[in-house]
């Protein structure tokens, strides 16, 4: 594990140095990404100009959900987002060369093109979290304060697993990136809003089938002191890390199976 982190930092650092050859492009990409994130968030303000509540939640509460989801997605994307390129590596035959090195291909693809521009999404969402916390009228207990980092970590874990699952799917369907994106980026989008706006059936699906409710919705209900519309037991508010662990095991199995059945290209 320590070794994996060492290699990760080493590879990421090398890609950063490689990117630093074009500093202007790096700064512009970083800025573009940050502006895009802010514009996306601004959409919430427009919605709230027309309605005081969204799915029963106030503006600071929705911002809290948006920011917590955004941070989880950003961290997962920064550290692992490029695994979605697996399909390209399979198509171009470059996965073969990755498999020849004494380091796992997941680590190599995850660090690929590692670039500070990936931070463009993290900074705006972190700012939003701070702003929403200042406007939330909450009675902070130790348990509430502790739930916040737990939900962020759980969210990161769930998105990591989803990203790897989506990549492993490309072992079976080489051009399956778009379908896979609907889960990863779709999941990122859905969790930005209170899940109650999607209705009870969707909420059930997002709890039991594709457990995106555990990214931020369930723990946020606890932090914000809201009842669960589905009336699930309190245990569910704290289940994010457990859900992340289960998904991680599934993702690891899928990845290994994919790699074992990998057929390579013709040359």
């Amino acid at each position: 594990m320590v070794e994996a982190v060492r290699i990760y930092l080493l590879l990421a650092g090398t890609w950063m140095r490689s990117a630093a050859q074009y500093p202007a492009s790096m700064v512009m990409l970083l800025a573009t990404q940050a502006v895009a994130t802010f514009l996306d968030a601004a959409a919430i303000l427009i919605v709230f100009a027309h309605t005081p509540r969204l799915g029963g939640f106030s503006l600071p509460e929705v911002m809290f959900l948006y920011a917590t989801s955004g941070i989880s997605v950003a961290v997962a994307d920064i550290t692992l987002g490029t695994v979605e390129r697996l399909g390209e590596h399979i198509r171009h035959g470059t996965l073969d060369t990755l498999l020849l090195r004494p380091v796992g291909p997941l680590l190599q693809i995850a660090t690929e093109d590692f670039n500070p521009r990936r931070m463009g999404k993290l900074v705006p969402t972190a700012v939003m979290l701070v702003v929403s916390l200042r406007h939330l009228d909450l009675h902070w207990t130790l348990a509430r304060a502790a739930t916040l980092p737990l939900m962020l970590a759980g969210g990161v874990g769930i998105f990591w697993a989803l990203w790897v699952l989506a990549a492993a799917w490309q072992f079976a369907v080489v051009d399956g990136k778009q379908a896979a994106n609907s889960i990863t980026y779709g999941g990122a989008y859905v969790t930005q809003y209170p899940l109650s706006i999607f209705g009870r059936d969707a909420l059930r699906g997002l709890t039991w089938v594709l457990p995106l409710a555990f990214v931020n919705w369930e723990p946020a209900l606890y932090v914000l002191g809201r009842p669960d519309p589905l009336g699930l037991p309190v245990f569910f508010r704290f289940a994010s890390p457990l859900v992340a662990a289960v998904l991680a095991v599934l993702a690891a199995l899928a990845w290994r199976t994919g790699l074992r059945h990998y057929q390579s290209t013709g040359s």
């Binding site: 498999l99 020849l100 059945h261 990998y262 057929q263 390579s264 013709g266 040359s267």
Partner: peptide, 12 residues
């Protein structure tokens, strides 16, 4: 190439 890829562990 298939043989080589089996020797190097790329293919099972």
């Amino acid at each position: 190439s298939t043989t080589i890829k089996m020797l190097t562990g790329i293919l099972t």
